[in-house]
Amino acid sequence: MARVSQAHLDARRRQILDGAAVCFARNGFHATSMQDVLKEVDLSAGAVYRYFSGKEELIAAIVSEVLGQVRASFEEASSRTDPPPPDVLVCEVLGRTLAAKASLTVDGKPAFPRLVVQVWTETLRNDELSAVLSEGYRTVHAAWVQIVEAYQAAGTMRADVDPDHVARTMIASVLGFIAHQSLFGPAPVEVLGDGLRALMSVPEPTPGP
């Protein structure tokens, strides 16, 4: 029997993950069965179960992959001596993430924002998935704290604000933008970048007499 190449195995795993992501985004986790996933990816049960034991493992793999990509992007930025300003950095990272998932659609609309909302809902009842998401958030938050500290050290961001507070705000803005897309339809990441840039330009209020 011919040996299956690693490239083939990776492509098959990618096919399964993408198909499952579309199913979960379309119907949610509870309404999606493994049979739905098998039908979506057009593979036998044996072919899918070779890679994943079931829905729970599929969900965790999808979440871990996305969070890993986002974390790596922000960690790379945090290692720079002069990271780009927040509006530019957010657009770069979120733009790459959305572009990587652009081929996944539900009824002609991007599936990724809907999938993110489904993940949030599932974490309320799934302790294992909640732990995966919490760990991913922790690493992204830590990277953002380093980025903020670099801004402050360079004098490009005021130093009297706790980096933790800025990191939480930046993460919340990205999550809110994704939720907005899920509810109201796609929008280019430049919309978020423009909004952040405008807010960053607001001067401090002048103290009263």
Rank of each mutant, 00 (worst) to 15 (best):
Ala131Cys: 05
Val166Asp: 11
Glu135His: 14
Gly185Asp: 15
Asp164Gly: 08
Ala77Phe: 08
Met170Ala: 05
Leu199Lys: 11
Phe184Asp: 12
Thr123Glu: 13
Leu175Glu: 15
Pro110Tyr: 12
Met157Pro: 07
Val116Met: 12
Gln146Trp: 02
Leu183Ile: 04
Pro205Glu: 13
Val161Ser: 03
Pro203Gln: 12
Ala99Arg: 12
Thr123Lys: 07
Asp87Lys: 00
Ser103Gly: 10
Ala198His: 08
Ile171Phe: 12
Glu190Gln: 14
His180Trp: 06
Leu104Met: 14
Trp144Ile: 05
Glu135Gly: 13
Thr105Ser: 04
Ala167Met: 02
Val132Asn: 09
Asp107Ala: 06
Ser79Leu: 04
Val93Lys: 01
Gly155Trp: 10
Thr156Asn: 06
Phe112Leu: 14
Gly176Gln: 05
Gly136Phe: 14
Arg168Phe: 13
Thr97Arg: 01
Leu104Ser: 07
Glu92Tyr: 08
Val148Ala: 00
Phe112Arg: 02
Ser201Thr: 10
Val148Arg: 04
His180Arg: 06
Asp164Lys: 13
Asp107Val: 01
Phe184Cys: 12
Lys109Ile: 06
Ser78Asp: 03
Arg158Asp: 00
Phe177Lys: 01
Gln181Pro: 08
Ala77Met: 11
Asp127Leu: 06
Ser182Gly: 02
Arg71Pro: 06
Lys101Val: 02
Val202Met: 15
His180Leu: 10
Val161Lys: 05
Val90His: 01
Val174Trp: 11
Gly195Arg: 10
Phe74Val: 05
Val93Ser: 03
Val166Ile: 15
Arg71Leu: 13
Pro203Met: 10
Leu104Tyr: 09
Ala179His: 06
Glu149Ile: 00
Val166Ser: 09
Phe177Gln: 01
Pro203Val: 14
Arg158Gln: 02
Ile171Asn: 09
Gly185Glu: 14
Ile147Cys: 02
Asp87Met: 01
Ala142Met: 04
Glu135Phe: 09
